[in-house]
């Protein structure tokens, strides 16, 4: 913002100096303050934060227990429901395999030549893993980490059982005929990063 003096200093008849008038140059006055939008955004974010905090506080006020007329305490319905849901998710898991849908090159995370790819034939194993009920975040839009893969459920059980099965299959991968026919040995499936 540029300022300039509009008048030269003046004095009254008593010799008292009148303060200079200062005005904003009309051309330099912005039509709108560029910071206004940012201010609104910051206010909006702050309000959102306050609302979120209030919601959290309200939920936090929900007691985790309920006490009946005889004074006996038990878990509040919302906590009981959450517990049951989480136990059910642990009890319902699946060990899966991602296999090549077509012949072609696929990413290889542990290949010795450093090329980072491996040629797989249709049906050959790329990755072994475990998923649980409610695990909706896993592989949305069939994004398995590489294209042209099909998801096969090979074992269902508790989460612990599936993790054990997954580990057994990962460790035994080099003994599969498809792995043994290659001129190099992969310790784990090409789509797995580590032993588990």
């Amino acid at each position: 913002m540029r300022l300039f003096k509009t008048d030269t200093p003046k004095t009254t008849s008593t010799g008292k100096e009148i303060p200079l008038k200062v005005s904003i140059h009309p051309e330099s006055k912005p039509n709108s303050d560029p910071g206004t939008g940012l201010h609104f955004l910051l206010i909006f974010i702050a309000l959102g934060g306050v609302l979120f905090a209030l919601q959290q506080m309200a939920e936090g006020k929900k007691s985790p227990i309920v006490v009946d007329e005889s004074g006996k305490a038990s878990l509040a319905p919302h906590r009981k429901e959450k517990l049951e849901r989480e136990i059910e998710e642990i009890d319902n898991a699946a060990q899966y395999a991602l296999r090549a849908e077509n012949d072609g090159y696929f990413p290889c995370y542990t290949c010795p030549d450093g090329k980072g790819t491996i040629y797989l034939y249709k049906g050959e194993l790329w990755r072994v893993g475990t998923t649980r009920k409610g695990d909706k975040g896993r592989y949305p839009k069939r994004d398995y980490g590489a294209p042209n893969l099909t998801f096969f459920i090979e074992f269902e059980g508790t989460y612990s059982e599936c993790l054990k099965m997954e580990k057994i299959k990962i460790y035994n991968y080099p003994l599969l005929p498809e792995a043994m026919k290659r001129d190099f040995i992969l310790a784990i499936p090409p789509g797995n990063l580590i032993d588990n």
Binding site: A97, E101, G123, K141, R142, L149, T150, F151, F152, I153, E154
Partner: peptide, 13 residues
């Protein structure tokens, strides 16, 4: 267009 499957392994192919 993307087509994929989540299949019990014994149902394949």
């Amino acid at each position: 267009i993307y087509v994929s499957g989540r299949l019990w392994h014994e149902i394949y192919p």
